[in-house]
Amino acid sequence: MTRPAFTCPVPDHHSTCPLESPDASMNILWVETVGTGVVAHGAVTTTLLTAVRAAHPTRYATLDGNSLTIWPPAD
């Protein structure tokens, strides 16, 4: 079964979002969005976290267990 394509809702991409890559989509079980914040759940690695931080240099990204969060920008 093919998973539906994921389009990252974060508007300020420095490059292609690593969450949209085929490798990431195989490991991510589901994604939640809150405004422009994103929480990805699944087999998330520190390698993916590093790639997300490079792609979103203006955002704070954290890894907590199996959840990667790209936080909304500070007001």
Rank of each mutant, 00 (worst) to 15 (best):
R3D: 09
S21C: 02
G37V: 05
T69A: 14
H56S: 04
F6S: 02
C8W: 11
G65W: 11
F6Q: 06
W30G: 01
L68G: 01
V38N: 02
P11D: 07
A74N: 03
S25T: 14
T58F: 08
R3A: 14
C17K: 02
H14M: 07
E32V: 06
S67R: 15
S67A: 15
S21A: 09
L68M: 06
P57A: 12
W71C: 05
G37A: 15
T2Y: 05
N66C: 10
L29M: 13
S21K: 09
A61Y: 01
P22V: 14
S15I: 11
C8N: 09
A55V: 07
G37L: 06
P22M: 09
T7A: 02
V38D: 02
P72V: 10
P4G: 05
T58V: 14
R53M: 13
F6K: 12
H41G: 00
V31N: 04
A43K: 12
L29P: 00
P18V: 11
D12P: 00
M26V: 15
A5C: 01
H56W: 06
W30P: 00
H56L: 14
R53L: 08
G65K: 12
L63Q: 09
A51Y: 06
M1P: 00
T50K: 12
A54W: 03
A24F: 01
T69E: 11
I28P: 00
V31R: 11
A51T: 04
A24Y: 03
V44Y: 02
T2N: 10
T36I: 12
I28C: 01
V38C: 04
A24L: 04
P72T: 13
A55M: 07
P73W: 08
L19F: 01
L49T: 06
T33I: 05
Y60L: 15
S25H: 12
W71F: 10
T16E: 06
M26T: 15
P22C: 08
M1G: 08
E20L: 05
A51W: 03
A5Y: 04
A40V: 02
H56Q: 09
T46S: 05
D23F: 05
D12R: 04
D75Y: 12
V10K: 05
L63G: 05
C17W: 00
P4H: 07
T50N: 08
M26F: 10
T62Y: 08
M1R: 01
A54Q: 15
G65Q: 11
H41C: 06
P18C: 10
I28Q: 03
A51M: 08
I28D: 01
A43G: 02
A55H: 03
D12T: 11
P18Y: 05
P73E: 12
V34M: 14
W30A: 07
L68V: 04
D23R: 15
I70K: 09
P22Y: 00
A54C: 01
T16N: 04
P72F: 07
T36H: 09
G37E: 14
V52G: 00
H41R: 13
A74K: 03
L48K: 09
T69P: 04
H41S: 08
S67G: 04
L48E: 06
Y60K: 15
G35R: 10
W30M: 14
M26H: 12
D75P: 15
T47G: 01
S15N: 03
T36P: 00
T58S: 14
A24C: 07
A5S: 09
P4C: 05
T45Q: 06
T33D: 03
